[in-house]
């Protein structure tokens, strides 16, 4: 009370102010109550349940704007076909199917593979790139340090795009390496690669895969000039394949992973070692990713744009 007298404030004014605030508070509460009733949005409780079964990385690999948007679409369509999370585990997919009340479809686990072996040794640099460290930019500017117009540029747009920390650039080969443990096959890296070097393929039985590790669509002689490990489109692999899984289009072989039975006949047949077989037991010839040496290539010209 002493304080109040000291500040020379009428006590009645204080009470008045408190009362007015209290009245405003009560009024606002009543108004908000009725507004909340009037504009109440009925949301399917399944959406929240499904969101809990999704990774929550909001990577966009499914093609929707984040995990919640995917869940909304799943509920609205009542199916997981065309709107499923490519990175989700089998158990979680089964849970989602349970929530939606449908049968869980058979999903094959996918993984990103790098279809390029244009390492510093296989494809020595002819010019040196000295500009913004972005594949999208380099791709607009020139064909690449090694001259291959379809190969990896090594600036790591895929690394930046990956939400799971699954891709890194090997400092010696300057090619991306996919961490098989971390990669969920969401495909965001493939979308961000300006040259389509990265492909999303089935992880394969026991993680074993056979694929053409080249993306060059030039004629064989031209491709060979730029890279030792380039697919030259000779078609030997397609002839030797007993399952008709290999097609050669615009000088580039492609192995259809739905047809490939992992017999590895093509691997032995390829004259350029452009076909890779990974995670096969050691005794049989299983070429590991390209041999690595230090970059000691001649530099003629520096590429950059001022």
């Amino acid at each position: 009370m002493n304080m109040i007298i000291l500040l020379n404030v009428d006590v009645a004014v204080l009470w008045q102010a408190a009362l007015i605030l209290a009245v405003i508070g009560v009024l606002a509460a009543v108004i908000l109550f009725f507004i909340a009733k009037k504009f109440h949005v009925e949301e399917d409780p399944r959406i929240d349940l499904i969101v809990e079964c999704l990774p929550g990385a909001n990577c966009g690999g499914c093609g929707f704007a984040g995990c919640r948007n995917l869940a909304e679409n799943m509920v609205a369509r009542g199916t997981m076909e065309g709107c499923s999370c490519p990175g989700n585990s089998k158990e979680n997919n089964a849970k989602i199917a349970g929530i939606l009340g449908i049968e869980a479809g058979e999903t094959t686990p996918k993984i990103a593979v790098v279809r390029c072996q244009g390492s510093c040794e296989n494809a020595p640099a002819k010019v040196q790139y000295d500009s913004a460290f972005s594949c999208a930019f380099a791709n607009n500017l020139f064909a690449g340090e090694n001259g291959c117009p379809n190969g990896c540029l090594g600036c790591g747009d895929c690394v930046k795009a990956c939400n799971f920390g699954a891709i890194s650039i090997d400092p010696e080969t300057r090619l991306p390496i996919v961490d098989e443990e971390k990669c969920v096959g969401c495909g965001v890296c493939a979308k961000n690669c300006p040259r389509g070097v990265i492909e999303i393929r089935a992880k394969g039985p026991k993680n074993r895969r056979v694929y053409v590790a080249c993306n060059n669509k030039e004629k064989g002689a031209v491709a060979m000039k730029n890279c030792k490990a380039a697919c030259i489109g000779c078609g030997k692999c397609a002839k030797v394949c007993p399952f008709e899984a290999i097609t050669v289009e615009s000088n580039l072989a492609y192995i259809d992973f739905t047809k490939c039975k992992m017999c590895k006949k093509c691997v032995a047949e390829c004259p350029k070692n452009a076909i890779l077989a990974v995670n096969f037991p050691a005794p049989k010839p299983a070429p590991a990713p390209a041999p690595e040496t230090k970059n000691e290539t001649a530099e003629e010209t520096t590429i950059s744009n001022q």
């Binding site: 500017l141 020139f142 064909a143 010209t301 520096t302 590429i303 950059s304 744009n305 001022q306």
Partner: peptide, 19 residues
């Protein structure tokens, strides 16, 4: 001592990647 060859002006031109 040439390190870079540019076609079309040092400000807006393009570095030549393929001679």
């Amino acid at each position: 001592d040439t390190g870079k060859i540019i076609s079309g002006g040092p400000m807006m031109g393009k570095a030549i990647a393929h001679l």
